[in-house]
Write a protein that binds this DNA or RNA. Sequence first.
DNA 1: CAGACGAATTGATCGAGATCAATGCGCCTC
DNA 2: GAGGCGCATTGATCTCGATCAATTCGTCTG
Lengths: 239, 239
Amino acid sequence: MSCQPPACSTAARDDGLCRNCMVRLVSVCASLTDDELAVLEQLATPTHFASGDTLFTQGSEAHCVYNVTAGVVRLYKLLSDGRRQVVGFALPGDFLGLAMRDAYGFSADAIGDVAVCAFSRAAYTALVDAKPHLLKRLHEFATHELTLAHEQMMLLGRRTAEEKLICFLLGMQQRWARLGKPSVTVQLPMTRQDIADFLGLTIETVSRTFTRLAKDKTILIVPGGVRVMNPERMHAVAA
Amino acid sequence: MSCQPPACSTAARDDGLCRNCMVRLVSVCASLTDDELAVLEQLATPTHFASGDTLFTQGSEAHCVYNVTAGVVRLYKLLSDGRRQVVGFALPGDFLGLAMRDAYGFSADAIGDVAVCAFSRAAYTALVDAKPHLLKRLHEFATHELTLAHEQMMLLGRRTAEEKLICFLLGMQQRWARLGKPSVTVQLPMTRQDIADFLGLTIETVSRTFTRLAKDKTILIVPGGVRVMNPERMHAVAA
DNA sequence: CAGACGAATTGATCGAGATCAATGCGCCTC
DNA sequence: GAGGCGCATTGATCTCGATCAATTCGTCTG
């Protein structure tokens, strides 16, 4: 997969201008001035991926870094026998390229249609070296990710299936809210299997736990997501 | 706990000079020139902690950051009902202060005697702002931590008790080796409970799994640690 | 050396979540 | 609208690791 293709499927994208980018203010780019954004535009390769497409694979050489501008990306690691751990779901504004050296540390593929800005490793490295405030912003992103990772360890190591699911739902709700889409209905574009692999459970346990929470009237299961019916109880469990 | 005390228990410490520091080359300080090290020396407060002492507590205001120079520190999060997740063990050269904003995201306490260089948040922030190559080094540390965190997620979510323990032992062996102490005997200064809380297991399961691995002749249990007897098998399981 | 205390080990039993196995449901194609 | 396919749900059963309960071991103390 090259990083340099000039081609850009323009249909689904606004106008290719960073300053008009939907995720400008929530992404790493927010640390850049208008002048710097103009430079960035030259380096960025807007790219689209269809549902199921692979952005990159664990262990392969890391040619590019990505800024997600639309859609959801599944990030996961595989064991040789096929066991899978989803290490995160990247939403618009998220940056893919923190946790890697020469090779990608995990695989990434599109859940539904995804749009990204791709940058070659070389351009990215040069830019970071030249712009300390961009590095500072990236470092903030990295430390934030690290904090989330610690919380995920707590969740994976010490929480019950019900707690895991509730924490996941509240976490997704919060993330969508920060992107300007606050709602009692939490969009869940990923499959039950993805959720199971994120929470260290099986698909059956996830399904059963959803059903039980729905019977409790804690949530309401709707197409493509879940409606939060009893946030008090959910926050109490997550605390 | 203040960061400014001039007092420094000199007994166990070399000479208080950064350039002679035991962990100089493996820690964040390695990115600094001799001139910059001299400045750093003015800002650093060498401090000692006895076994069980608390460096800082989850949720309390983050006054200081720390560079571990000797000993091992247990980093952990607690749930309100007492469930504990150890998120890491900091060894000499490790930096404590990446994953925090205004408050500490986890608690830290000494396992055995510990020596650190403490820095006030203000001094740390100013220094990072002034020295881009220090920031770069910190960012490298953060991304490395993030990679380790992803591996820990895989371990917590998808591995069996035996795999967890073997991965833990190999990981500790590798970390000690990188600090210049390569050995088939892995030092384990932490308790079984600490290991259990790190791996998402109970103390009984850790103990039983150790016993089983010893009966297998995969390891030999020795005072204060474990001797690796069958590294081939262990690496095969961890792969 | 007796006693005490904390850490570790070992045994017996339990249970949350995994596994195995249908079945249901939506969506697409022909 | 019949058939097929992928995803989700539900039920029956099993198992790994948790829980409950003694010991055992090591170290410290009087």
